[in-house]
Nucleic acid binder design. Structure first.
Length: 583
RNA sequence: GCCCCCUUAGUUCAGUGGUAGAACAGAGGAAUCGUAAACCACAUACGUCAGUUCGAUUCUGGCAGGGGGCUCCA
């Protein structure tokens, strides 16, 4: 889409927000409209319906009225008005009045518009042919949203909708939403039996089944393998700590509300760890370090606990216990680049193996307007950000810079993956930490015998395993690459008289290191195939009279109708190769 | 936390002011089957606590759990 077209679509969508208002006001007099912008894939409009509540059930009625009103709409007229005029025009809409006062104090122009018998306050940018251009729309959902995003202010009702140039585009978009729903990890997670929740355990606390645990461990083992090759060592820490540790690290203050606290019977205050760095720092600090033993690279896959608001919880994407594949590198200034690039190598290798070919790189910097959110001095930050920028420039094909996205202790490089239906997810991260080393006085003894300040690098490859698995499930629609599939090969005897041959074959494959399952249920072949397809097993081996001698196999691939004949030996070689390549 | 919606079997859904019906899954049979199941028959559910009522799974409210969201500004 050209920029012009994109702008035009934005105008159409924004105009539809106005249309929603016009229709809502005519259906429910007394309705006040707040803001209604175009957004990435549609638009929304905020309302105050007073005591009346509306829901998705009202959409057919609302859409119908919208279409009726649209018939009488002409190209939008836009003109400027004075503050007094504006106050008069919107006297019974407190939200518009608040905005008008804002604009007045800032000295901004005030404009209104009218597409035909419907006046609204708006900065402009509307459809110039409403009757034709605005036809292809649909209302999607309602939501609560705070006035101006401030949770201390009133909760408004937000209506989301979308619109496109043509009906085909609209239908395509709706189909995509359906597809996303089908891939929803919460649904697939149940179907594939990967994880579950229990009301007794609580929301946001997933329980991993044998299959789910298998996948977690496979992923984690792979990360460990990549790290071990680069000099990392594993450490282990307890999951609780005295509050003193977080007072010193600064987390107590920053994460007060999210900490799970524990008071002992002797009235000492402990906290569940919300992160691992302060613990790992204590391991580093157990003894003085010579420059000769730097860097020290600690890694540990472990859970952290955060008291998220219940409304924020969602499936695996937002949980209260997060498994991090965490690593902390304690190194000298001069070693930052090498260590960063090592992590970068791991990230590249890992994401290729799990099926994400493209990773976007984002340099996350501090927000200069709100320096109070960060630890340290502006000078320290400038230097740290400079070195990350240099590394990213050298290593990344291209990258974007995002002020305000840094961690509170330092800038970072974030990696974003694109999934198979075009969504973007933040996944891995490498963070430079200049502040914890100051706070905890971390040093090494350098060549001159002096204590030299060191830096820390925080590096998570998957980040949160929960979130990562949710992204992975949705990306592959549950059909994992062979190396990750809980069951890689399903053996299907045609009838019970083939069970013996099937078991023999299963044993053969098991010995070759393949995760194989023999479906010896007393059912038809068609039924067994259906079961294996639903479980997204990559390979199915059908054993009947023709194959009973185990020289040749009928191999059926996941998602494909055709079968292929193959020798047993060749099949084992092929699958083994596929698993080893992690492709 | 806040706003709106939802909660019936393990899962997906139907239904009623007089305590419920199905499909798949499960256990049991029959059949011994060649590339996406469903031949027979069995068991299993109204989230929870109150209120209204002669009577509540159904109506009302609290609680719990789930879903859509919570500044891409007029």
């Amino acid at each position: 889409m050209t920029q012009d077209q994109q702008q035009k679509l934005q105008q159409i969508r924004h105009s539809l927000a106005h249309l929603t208002v016009a229709a809502a006001k005519s259906l429910w007099p007394g309705t006040c409209n707040a803001i209604g912008p175009a957004i990435d894939d549609g638009f929304y409009q905020d309302f105050d319906f007073g005591t009346h509540t509306i829901s998705e059930k009202d959409f057919p009625k609302l859409e119908k009225r919208m279409r009726e009103i649209l018939k009488h709409w002409k190209p939008f007229k836009e003109w400027e008005v004075s503050v007094e005029e504006a106050r008069k025009m919107f006297a019974n809409n407190p939200y518009k009045l608040e905005l008008i006062e804002d604009f007045a104090t800032k000295g901004q122009k005030i404009t209104v518009n009218d597409p035909g018998n419907f006046l609204d306050l708006c900065r402009g940018g509307h459809s110039d042919n409403p009757k034709e251009d605005m036809k292809h729309f649909k209302l999607l959902s309602t939501a609560g949203a705070y006035w101006r995003g401030d949770e201390k202010k009133k909760m408004l009702t937000r209506i989301y909708g979308t619109a496109f140039f043509t009906d085909e585009d609209l239908q395509k978009h709706l189909t995509m939403l359906e597809e996303a729903k089908k891939r929803d990890h919460r649904k697939l997670g149940v179907e594939l039996d990967l994880f579950t929740f229990s009301d007794l355990v609580g929301p946001g606390l997933p329980l991993w089944t044998p299959r789910g645990t298998l996948i977690r461990n496979l992923l984690n083992d792979f990360v460990w393998e990549l790290r071990r090759a680069r000099g990392y060592e594993r450490v282990t820490i307890p999951h609780i700590t005295k509050k003193d540790l977080y007072e010193k690290s600064g987390h107590w203050d920053k994460f007060k509300n999210e900490l799970f606290r524990i008071t002992t019977r002797e009235e000492h205050v402990f906290a569940m760890k919300p992160m691992n760095c302060p613990h790992h720092i204590q391991i580093f600090k157990r003894q003085p370090h010579s420059y000769r033993e730097m860097p020290q690279r600690y890694t540990e896959t472990t859970m952290v606990y955060r008291d998220e608001q219940t409304g924020e919880l969602s499936g695996l994407s937002r949980v209260r216990c997060i498994t991090q594949d965490d690593a902390h590198v304690f190194c000298r200034q001069s070693q930052i680049k090498d260590e960063f690039l090592k992590v970068w190598d791991i990230i590249d290798a890992f994401y290729k193996a799990v099926g994400f070919s493209v990773l976007d790189v984002r340099l996350s910097l501090h927000d200069p307007k709100h320096f109070e959110k960060y630890l340290g001095t502006p000078e320290l930050w400038k230097e740290a950000e400079g070195s990350l920028r240099a590394i990213a420039t050298e290593r990344a094909k291209q990258f974007t810079e995002a002020p305000g996205e840094a961690a509170f202790y330092g800038p970072k490089v974030d990696f974003m993956a694109h999934d198979s239906i075009g969504r973007q997810w933040q996944v891995a991260t490498i963070q430079l930490d200049i502040n914890m080393p100051e706070r905890f006085d971390l040093t090494c003894v350098n060549e001159k015998g002096e204590n030299e300040r060191i830096v820390m690098i925080h590096a998570a490859i998957m980040g949160s395993i929960e979130r990562f698995v949710s992204v992975l499930i949705e990306h592959h629609a549950g059909a994992f690459p062979t190396w990750l599939a809980p069951v890689q090969v399903q053996v299907l005897p045609v009838s019970t008289k083939h069970d013996r041959s099937a078991k023999k074959l299963t044993k053969l494959l098991l010995e070759a290191g393949i995760r194989v399952h023999c479906d010896d249920a007393n059912e038809t072949v068609g039924y067994k195939i259906r079961k294996a397809e639903k479980q997204k097993v990559p390979y199915m081996l059908v054993i009947g009279d023709k194959e009973a001698k185990l020289t040749k196999l009928a191999v059926r691939l996941r998602g494909q109708q055709k079968t292929k004949d193959m020798m047993v030996k060749k099949f084992v070689e092929r699958v083994t190769k596929e698993i080893e390549k992690r492709k």
